[in-house]
Design a protein around this nucleic acid. Structure first.
Length: 440
RNA sequence: GACUCUAUCGUCCAGCGGUUAGGACACCGCCCUUUCACGGCGGAUACACGGGUUCGAAUCCCGUUAGAGUCGCCA
């Protein structure tokens, strides 16, 4: 029987890193074993479902590169993939339970009568765990249907996993205590339970289970915050799982090859934004310029930077790519390359341009640069160093004023690369502008 | 409270009876250097506690403590 896994989120309008990792692990396991990864929307609580809430889930998964084989947008032979559209199926299974006499009515609700036995769960991650379900006080009969006819999670979740022929249920450990109840339902419905794999939780900084309140942990936050999807996927894969050889920089393809349920640990993890940030920088540093441009373009367009053509943009991106840590930083880092109306950072100007002799250096450098025939990084470097030597001062005396003059700021790409990208005319003009602005 | 799970640097991850307890992020030095990064070198920091088992325990067992999860007409 081929592997079938699923991600079954509720459309809360929010996809956090914990849910994303659950989706990732299910996707990895299915892909690794040549099986199917299914997306099912658990929207039984119709009151809060909105179109936007659904699309947050789709966008998040698409962004991470987790394509589903069956589900919304994809179709499949086991649909519909929205629980809100599966009422007839639930009615059918409820009838099965009724025929067996294991459900009863209580204040308008329908409850499932527990067999009151010990249930042993064989979990692929947690091992064998037994639950004594005999005490009705501590383990009350679960409600499976509300008085208004709507269904409760435990029941529809189990019914759908049966109907959709899931072989493996990989989900957060917060469901471990629910599992014996689910197993009772599988038994009552005459179905064999799937293999369970409960993965450790991802905790917030208080050490508690992640919730909607932890806004910084939403995938939307990472998308808008300028993270590369490959970096985030890599990072979250390392929460609870590892290749066991201390490697950390892994592509989704490599992870897919190495991934096993056996290598998932049991310990809950706190999400470490610092490390995710670092990994993102590593990805931006090492990815191709094409990929960098692709990821960065939405941010540049949003900022309204008039870069003209892609041919003009690429060199600018090339020089900031090794420096930025967030894609969302790129507009700020390249903005001054595409306008003559750039602002001078007061502190930078104070230090580099208002300094005694700074404008003289600028004038000397302008004269020297004016003679440069081949406007390239190495030629400019040679010329600047030569000029510094002639004047008997350290190269920094020229470098800092030049940097601030052409960019308005003290921090940026390598000076010579920046000068090369700007081109001779603009650099000389900017020297003039700086001189005019600070000579008073 | 009951049940279940967990317990190695601040954080993430190795370790699965014998290691100077390893790697990464963060932190602190130094180097590189035109800024900021990157990179390189070095440093500080961990086996929760108590009992066993064993020649030998971070590793196996029991207990304690601590944390988390579940116990819904949320999913």
């Amino acid at each position: 029987m081929s592997v079938r896994t699923r991600f079954a989120p509720s459309p809360t309008g929010f996809l956090h890193v914990g849910g994303a990792r659950t989706a990732l692990f299910n996707w990895l396991y299915a892909r690794k074993h040549g099986g199917a990864f299914i997306l099912r929307i658990e929207d039984t609580d119709a009151a809060r479902n909105t179109d936007e809430a659904y699309s947050v889930i789709y966008q998040g998964l698409h962004w991470l590169g987790l394509q589903w084989d069956e589900g919304p947008e994809a179709g499949g032979n086991f649909g519909p993939y929205f629980q809100s559209q599966r009422n007839a199926i639930y009615e059918k299974h409820l009838a099965t339970l009724e025929a067996k006499g294991v459900v009863y009515e209580d204040a308008g609700t329908i409850r499932f009568r527990s067999p009151r036995k010990t249930v042993v769960v064989e979990d692929l991650v947690c091992g064998k765990i037994s639950f004594d379900m005999s005490n009705p006080v501590t383990h009350p009969d679960m409600t499976i249907r509300r008085p208004d006819g709507s269904w409760i999670f435990h029941f529809v979740n189990v019914v759908d996993d049966i109907e959709m022929q899931l072989t493996h249920v990989i989900r957060g450990e917060d469901h471990l205590s629910n599992t014996p109840k689910h197993v009772e339902l599988y038994d009552a419905l005459g179905a064999k339970p799937p293999q369970f794999a409960h993965i450790p939780l991802i905790l917030n900084h208080e050490g508690k289970k992640l919730s909607k309140r932890d806004g910084g942990s939403s995938i939307t936050h990472f998308i808008d915050g300028g993270y590369a999807p490959e970096a985030v996927a890599n990072y979250i894969s390392l929460l609870g799982w590892s290749p066991k050889d201390n490697r950390e920089f892994l592509s989704l393809e490599e992870i897919r090859e190495l991934f096993t349920l056996e290598n998932i640990n049991r310990r809950s993890a706190i999400f470490d934004l610092d490390k995710c940030f670092w990994l993102n920088g590593q990805y931006l540093l090492h990815m191709s310029l094409e990929r960098f441009a692709e990821l960065t373009l939405p941010f540049i367009d949003k900022a309204g930077i008039a870069y003209g053509s892609k041919e003009a943009l690429l060199p600018a991106l090339a020089i900031v790519k090794p420096k930025v840590k967030h894609l969302s930083d790129v507009p700020d880092w390249i903005g001054y390359l595409f306008t003559e109306d750039y602002a001078f950072d007061p502190a930078a100007a104070e230090k580099a341009l208002r300094k005694t002799g700074a404008l003289d250096r600028l004038a000397q450098l302008k004269a020297a640069f004016a003679t440069v025939a081949e406007w390239t990084h190495p030629a400019l470097e040679t010329k600047l160093k030569e000029t510094a030597e002639q004047q008997g001062v350290k190269t920094g005396e020229f470098i800092h004023p030049a940097r601030v003059a052409v960019s308005g700021r003290a921090v940026g790409p390598g000076l010579y690369e920046m000068l090369e990208v700007l081109g001779k005319d603009r650099v000389l003009a900017r020297f003039d502008r700086a001189n005019a602005e600070f000579s008073a």
